[in-house]
Design a protein around this nucleic acid. Sequence first.
RNA 1: GCAGUCAUAGUAUAGCCUGGUUAGUAUUCGGGGUUUCCAACCCUGUGACGCGGGUUCGAAUCCCGCUGACUGCACCA
Length: 485
Amino acid sequence: MNYEDVMKLALERGFYFPSCEIYADAQAGFWEYGPSGVSLKNKFLELWRRELIRRDGMMEIDGSQIMSKSVFEASGHLGNFADPIIKCIKCKSTFRADRTIAEISKIEIPESADLIEFDNAVTQNNIKCPRCKGDFEKTRKFNMMFKVGIGPEEEEAYLRPETCQSIFVDFPRLFKTMRGKLPLGIAQVGKSFRNEIAPRQSLLRLREFYQAEIEVFCNPTKLDEMDRFSEIQNTIIRIQTDAEPISMTCMEAVESKVIPNKFVAYYLGILTEFYEKTGIDITKSRFRKLGDKEKAFYAEVAFDFEVETTIGWLELVACNYRSDYDLSSHAKKSNEKFEVMDNDEKVLPHVFEISMGIDRSLYTILEHSLRDDKENERIVLALKPYLSPIHVGILSLIKKDGLKEKTDEIYLQIKRKCDAFLDHSGAIGRRYRRLDEIGSPFAITVDYQTLEDETVTIRKRDSMEQSRIKISELQSIITESIAYP
RNA sequence: GCAGUCAUAGUAUAGCCUGGUUAGUAUUCGGGGUUUCCAACCCUGUGACGCGGGUUCGAAUCCCGCUGACUGCACCA
């Protein structure tokens, strides 16, 4: 199933839809999650917590979305998170200043250079608009952060462009008060904000989006001392350094130096195991090692976790070895001490980051789970049971003869134990189809026999098979079937 | 941000060229009936011309601006 099919399902079944859609001035790049989307997202995050946070013994925090100017001076975002752009006076086309100058005059100006350098290069080399040969306006910087004014004086602050800055800023207090020990993972889920020039494709390119970020603080001299590595040494990951992704175990990846050390390999391993459990087809995934030009300005080694979808390879997670870039720049700017003791050694920790795009992950889960079952004339969202927005539909075969009352009773018993959905109306087949589309793995139906022997039928989403079970066993059967792995 | 295409119920569409009835159809959805385990059938009901301006006696229809979507380019820490 392709992007359009997922989009249609999202709109029709309450997964996600455009923000402020009733107003004409609604801007692109903002989307809302409906009830099904929120339920899926919550369950996805619970899985993330189980498979990464708790598994590795990490801490989780929840920081401010608005952060002070100093944070982004230190982080480099005010300087580097902006592109120098030039605009043609005549045809209004906008270009990247550094690239346009390099293409026409072969002069390389770093993108972080002073704006006047770009203007000089344009006039000295007589650079004109590549489209219409018009003149350019003065170079300006387009910063992708949203600026906000705090209080009546409109003090300068910014919406965070990545969640991780609070983790770095909070690190000294957390390490001291939470009895930190290297290596230490600190995680955060939340919104980030980027003023994208061209947001596109619903959840895939947003101006306001969810990230689940993990920053692992480590002693850079002990990157191959990783006891837990044995847990994942035989886990198969797909990794791409050249043309094609190659499958190998984490052990092989370290031994062949494709991954620089056991520390990084361990986290790529548990990340792969996590994504396997989301139902994403892991044979369509790869860790792509980024070249120097593609890497973020703070990254020393970078792997993007990408998954193949009908609209191409999608970057779901950026794994960056950020070295001491963040801690040392915050230390310098703030005069706070970021060194910690690792046994007898005083170290400024390095940081390995696992920065996950939640919205893109949810899209990919939906696309990889959505099936067109032509034989039975139905659309099935074959989600893992523990991720399904609705775990079980509680249906009465018909409304009359006391069946409705009996069904209500069962619903009351179970609705606080799992996500159950009560439905009495319409043909039974139609109700099954609706549940199939939002991925409910089970439907139970109350019929005349229920009134005689306290049994109901349970229908499985994927096979459409039905069997009879006792009402007394219903709850344990359901809770067992929807349990996290 | 640029260029091209487009914008009508929850979804998919007709109508627009050539301005003029109650904006049509399919599906979805609500109520009722029938059936009594897989989108059947019958009755019934709700629901739409993206926003703003202009032309006109009259605009879904013609014109302008804006916004958004799609595709391509550029961008993507």
